[in-house]
Lab assay of single mutants.
Amino acid sequence: TEYKLVVVGAGGVGKSALTIQLIQNHFVDEYDPTIEDSYRKQVVIDGETCLLDILDTAGQEEYSAMRDQYMRTGEGFLCVFAINNTKSFEDIHQYREQIKRVKDSDDVPMVLVGNKCDLAARTVESRQAQDLARSYGIPYIETSAKTRQGVEDAFYTLVREIRQH
């Protein structure tokens, strides 16, 4: 089974770092803004072998026109913010609204991801993020692309959301 996953969120929150940590098991430290990259990885989730087709997208506003296209083809979405960047957390709402509009559905598989949880300088409390996820009816997972904490959990949870859909 193949799953088309799309990673969305503001610029600099760590979308590529999360994806590369999942696929290649290493942490990319330097920031190089993405336009669009796709990665494929075969994994076993709950005993089922599946192929993850992951689209890593641009957070930069100037590429926002490309969003409709990949939102149409994606089956599930990782909505990523950084726990030390309140603005990126506030941006999640717009991504969710755009996904709902493009998919013409209120019920699209999504996982809210709070990345950079290895950093002490948190400005978005776990509780705020949990409340937001609960209001959307989606899971919330904290990750660190640096330490790998929660990385597999985030992507695998999204696959489970798609399966249950």
Score class of each variant (00 low, 15 high):
37 D>P: 01
114 G>I: 13
98 Q>N: 00
141 I>Q: 06
126 S>T: 11
8 V>Q: 04
78 L>Q: 06
68 D>V: 00
94 Q>M: 10
20 I>A: 00
128 Q>A: 11
152 E>W: 13
22 L>C: 13
130 Q>W: 10
152 E>Q: 13
62 E>S: 05
106 D>N: 12
91 D>K: 15
39 Y>M: 08
161 E>D: 07
105 S>W: 08
84 N>F: 08
37 D>N: 01
161 E>N: 10
7 V>W: 10
121 A>C: 06
90 E>L: 05
95 Y>N: 00
128 Q>F: 14
116 K>Y: 15
53 D>L: 06
33 P>M: 09
51 L>A: 01
144 S>E: 15
26 H>I: 04
136 Y>A: 09
8 V>M: 08
153 D>Q: 01
155 F>E: 00
12 G>M: 15
62 E>W: 15
48 E>R: 05
19 T>S: 08
78 L>A: 05
114 G>S: 11
28 V>H: 03
138 I>S: 06
119 L>C: 13
124 V>F: 14
65 A>L: 06
111 V>I: 13
32 D>Q: 13
138 I>D: 07
144 S>A: 15
67 R>D: 15
118 D>G: 14
10 A>S: 07
6 V>S: 07
31 Y>Q: 11
49 T>V: 05
79 C>V: 08
146 K>I: 14
50 C>H: 09
45 I>P: 09
38 S>Q: 01
102 V>Y: 08
117 C>G: 10
117 C>V: 09
122 R>T: 14
144 S>C: 15
63 Y>L: 08
119 L>F: 14
86 T>Q: 08
83 I>A: 13
126 S>H: 07
88 S>G: 07
51 L>W: 05
101 R>C: 03
105 S>M: 10
64 S>W: 09
147 T>K: 09
5 L>F: 04
71 M>Y: 04
83 I>F: 07
30 E>C: 11
135 S>Q: 08
164 Q>M: 11
139 P>T: 11
163 R>C: 13
41 K>Y: 00
103 K>D: 02
154 A>Q: 05
43 V>P: 10
111 V>H: 08
142 E>F: 10
72 R>D: 10
133 A>G: 09
116 K>F: 15
130 Q>I: 04
28 V>M: 06
96 R>V: 10
30 E>N: 03
44 V>T: 07
101 R>V: 01
69 Q>C: 11
84 N>M: 11
141 I>H: 08
165 H>E: 13
113 V>L: 12
92 I>Y: 11
120 A>E: 11
156 Y>F: 15
125 E>L: 12
82 A>D: 11
92 I>S: 01
99 I>M: 03
3 Y>H: 05
52 L>Y: 13
62 E>N: 14
85 N>M: 08
81 F>S: 04
